[in-house]
Design a binder for these strands. Sequence first.
RNA 1: GGAGAGGUGGCAGAGUGGUCGAAUGUGCCCGACUCGAAAUCGGGUGUGCCGCAAGGUACCGGGGGUUCGAAUCCCUCCCUCUCCGCCA
Length: 422
Amino acid sequence: MINLTFFRNNIDAVKQSISRKKFACEIDLANELDQKRREAISLAEKARAGQKAVNGEMSRLSKGSHEFISKVAEMKELARKVKELEAFAKQANEEFQKAFLTIPNIPHDSVPDGKGEDDNQVVSTWGNCEGDFPYALPHYDIPWFEQMIDFPRGVKVAGAGYPFFLGDMSKLVRALINFFLDEASNNGYDEVHSPILVNAQSATATGQLPDKEGQMYYDQNEELYLIPTAEVPVTNFFRDDIIPSEQLPVKRCAYTPCFRREAGSWGKDVRGLNRLHQFDKVELVKWTHPDDSFAELDSLRLDAESLLQKLGLPYRVLLICSGDIGFPHSKQFDLEIWAAGQKRWLEVSSCSNFTDFQARRANIRFREEGEKPKPVHTLNGSALAIPRVLAGILENFLQDDGRVKVPECLHQWFPKEFIGPS
RNA sequence: GGAGAGGUGGCAGAGUGGUCGAAUGUGCCCGACUCGAAAUCGGGUGUGCCGCAAGGUACCGGGGGUUCGAAUCCCUCCCUCUCCGCCA
């Protein structure tokens, strides 16, 4: 959530900024409910103070005394009133909180205006983008593709979007995970292995709830969500914590499977590895001092970019426009690789600064010498999503002999020069 | 899954209906003593919300209830520990 004091004092500016985003929210209603809530709290607390004062007197009286007994009778009415006012204040507060929770984060000034993905800005490109790859094929059209990535068996066992990766392909997946994790460690991110189911409170803190309720798999028995990204459990590690300021920035990385129902988006771009219900991803997460978060976003993005450069995959960097940016995001960059077989861009990373939006929801704070605790800024980025990176490798590095050349940086974990039919 | 015990401030640990945001110890900070330190002594030491402020209010695992009044009694949920069962 955004800063309440700022919200109160800058309603018009907030309205203006948020109107740049695509999310509908009732700012006036929230503001109205805030005022209502404050009045209600004030009234309830005044009544309660009166009650407490009399109770203090009563505690000094002897229980059987006339004075005591008459006070009990007198206080019954006040007690009833206090209860009523407190219930009203509680309800007013809940109504406000609910409305306030639907207000998205304010986009940063550097975020360009735009209506949708067509208005995203290409910030930079690297490598042979949209260039000539003479032997490239869409990865799903490579003759031996289904020998190594078995979709029909996945359909039988689980459903569409849950393929098996077989033999060398499985090893290549593992090599990518190891490469990404080791690179992250080298860049100063501490590795964590996290839960892949989370409770509603965690999903709310990072902003998946209530915004993306229908996109997550849910276990009704345990009331747990399968994570759509490691961002959720990893960020929530510090929920309700105060991080000593000298520890900032905290940098962590995690490999997890990710689960997305992709409700509504099934039907387009679904072939092969482009969009799966379950996929592997290494995620980078940072908790930073508010003054440093945008600089940290740039370095986070560069950390992710360096992986693509080492893999030799051409890519472009998109600065996501206001109309396409996510709900809790302040600023967002996407990295898209050029998949030469499909002749299209594939998003393999999204690097974002959430400023204090998640930190307020999650109550993650830092404390500076002699100061009150303040919310940190949280950031995260994929580094990287594995199936689409794999798709890029298969398509771009396909040779005339039908085999795929494996990038050198993976040889430490995948000690073969080529992958293909055995 | 079953039976029992328990969840109090950074930590330890009292408190079983009233003056309790909460004894005491410990840790931490400031000061005194000291050349300096240790020891000792004195003082301080949570967070949120409402309020311009003074101040008020809330928080003893979460939620609900009883009562004029709840850390304390009742209900419920969660978690931890011990024993049993099951099991990677």
